[in-house]
Computed example of a mutant assay.
Amino acid sequence: MYVVLLTYTAPLQEIDYTLPDHAEWLARQYEHNYLLTSGRRDMHLGEVMLVRQMPRLKLDAILASDPLAIHHLAHYEVVEFSATRTAPEMRSLNEALAR
């Protein structure tokens, strides 16, 4: 799994202009079943996304297709991790427990 920390690198006016396209991009990622959850960070610093396990190069390509990335309005920090414990509500999402 991955945690993606998206940090805005442009003024909020520019970000706000691109957010409708970004929202459509997010919807497509959910349709493809790549994202588990996403949401805004406090103080409108950016966003956090929890992404299913996939090859890292595939994730990089997906993130590069985000309108915020295309317009150079955000920086993405990707943290890969293997969940070793999971709340009961999320156990079906934990690939390590599903094996």
Rank of each mutant, 00 (worst) to 15 (best):
E14C: 07
A98I: 14
T18K: 02
N94P: 03
A87E: 07
T9M: 01
F81L: 11
L68W: 04
Q53N: 12
V48P: 02
S38M: 07
S38A: 14
A27Y: 00
R40I: 06
S65V: 07
T7D: 03
A83S: 13
H44I: 07
L73M: 09
M43F: 06
A74R: 06
L59N: 09
E24D: 08
S82K: 11
L93N: 13
P67T: 07
A74L: 04
Y8N: 04
T86L: 01
L73A: 04
V79I: 15
H71N: 15
R52L: 00
L93F: 13
A96L: 09
L63Q: 00
A98M: 15
Q13F: 00
L19N: 07
M90I: 03
Q53Y: 00
K58M: 13
A87P: 03
L36Y: 05
L59H: 10
L57D: 14
L93D: 05
Q29K: 08
Y8T: 10
H22C: 08
V51G: 06
E14S: 14
R40Q: 08
H75P: 02
R85Q: 12
R99T: 15
E77Q: 13
V4S: 04
F81G: 15
H71S: 12
L68V: 07
P88D: 07
I70H: 06
Q13P: 00
A83K: 05
T7A: 05
H71R: 15
L45T: 12
M49Y: 11
E47R: 10
D66H: 03
D42L: 13
H22R: 06
Y17V: 12
K58S: 06
Y2V: 05
R40D: 02
E95R: 14
V4R: 01
R52E: 08
L63A: 07
A61T: 14
T86P: 01
L36C: 06
V79H: 09
I70L: 11
A74Q: 02
Y34G: 01
E31D: 15
I15W: 01
K58P: 00
A74T: 10
R52Q: 09
M54I: 13
L35I: 08
M90G: 14
L26G: 04
P88L: 05
E47T: 09
V4H: 02
V3N: 02
A69Y: 01
D60P: 03
H72P: 06
R99S: 11
T86R: 03
E24V: 11
R56H: 12
N33F: 02
E14D: 15
Q13E: 09
L50E: 12
I15N: 04
A96F: 09
L12M: 14
M49K: 03
M90R: 10
I62S: 09
M54C: 10
E24W: 03
L45S: 13
T37A: 12
N33Q: 14
T9I: 10
L5F: 02
L68D: 03
A23E: 05
G39N: 08
E77K: 11
A87G: 01
A23W: 02
D60A: 15
A69M: 10
L97H: 09
E95K: 13
E80T: 12
T7W: 00
Q13L: 12
R85T: 14
V3I: 14
P55A: 09
L35P: 01
E89R: 06
L68T: 04
D16H: 14
M49G: 04
Y34N: 10
Y17A: 15
V3A: 09
R28K: 13
I70V: 15
Q29D: 01
L26E: 01
H32D: 09
M49R: 08
H44Y: 03
